[in-house]
Computed example of a mutant assay.
Amino acid sequence: MLPRRLLQLLLGLTLYGVSLALMLRANLGLDPWDVFHQGLARHLGWSIGTVVNVMGAVVLLLWWPIRQRPGLGTVLNVLVVGSVVDVTLSLLPPASSLTERIILLPCGVLLNAVATAAYIGARLGPGPRDGLMTGLVRRTGRPVRVVRTAIELSVLAAGWLLGGSVGVGTVAYALLIGPLVQPLLPLFAVPETSPIPQEA
């Protein structure tokens, strides 16, 4: 079962990176964390993939005071997602028309939902940003929606001030990602234990 979980995790993280690259090429607005990543990348002169990976490591350091423990999936998230973003951007040219951008955006959001369900369903540890949220929920006793909203509004505001791309894609992601991921999760969730084979 572990090889299947590891393969699913790696596939999910890879697709997550590709989905982010599609949304970047659409240039119609990003999800809150990636607005922040893009804004930082513009000021630091780094590739956005490098910023995604470095910020994943920084956020992971914030787990220590809230006593959140990383898993293999957490570590691989820090290493894989940003690297895939940069590779995909190097292979995928900028959109040449508004029509292409409009096509890229929903493809990116849908692929992001599939990727999210895949890596969460592998049960090998949350991503650094998701783990920060769940750790804060546990430590503060606040509802998930309050903690998540506070974190995402904070990084969105910071990213916007840094020049990150906020637009219709940001709104579309906020409205659609939850409803898309929810029905996909049961399809990708790896069972806690393997079923006992039945004799013929």
Rank of each mutant, 00 (worst) to 15 (best):
G169Y: 05
A117I: 09
L79S: 01
V87M: 09
Q68R: 11
L110R: 07
L98P: 10
V155L: 02
L72G: 05
G71M: 06
R145M: 12
L162I: 03
M133N: 04
L92Q: 13
G163V: 10
P106K: 02
V80T: 14
L92A: 09
G125P: 00
S83T: 15
P70Q: 03
I102F: 15
V80G: 07
C107T: 00
G135W: 08
L136C: 06
L72C: 09
W160P: 10
P128Q: 07
L98F: 10
W160I: 13
V81P: 11
R101K: 13
E100V: 12
L153N: 10
G108R: 00
L79W: 01
L153K: 01
A157H: 03
G131P: 04
C107W: 10
R129P: 11
V75A: 15
R69K: 15
G82W: 08
V84H: 07
T88D: 01
Q68A: 13
G71F: 09
G164T: 06
V84K: 02
G131A: 06
L72E: 00
T149N: 13
V114C: 13
R67C: 01
I66W: 13
T116V: 03
S96W: 01
P94L: 08
A158L: 12
V137F: 00
C107N: 00
T134D: 00
V81C: 14
V168T: 05
A117H: 02
A150L: 11
S165T: 15
T99M: 07
L89D: 05
L92C: 06
R67G: 11
N112S: 15
L161Y: 13
V114P: 08
T116Y: 03
R69D: 14
N77F: 12
V144W: 08
L92E: 10
Y119I: 07
Q68V: 06
V147M: 06
L79V: 13
G163T: 05
G163R: 07
T99H: 08
G163W: 07
L111A: 02
V155G: 02
T88H: 02
R129W: 10
A158S: 14
G141C: 04
R129G: 09
V80N: 06
A157I: 12
L105D: 11
V75Y: 14
L92N: 07
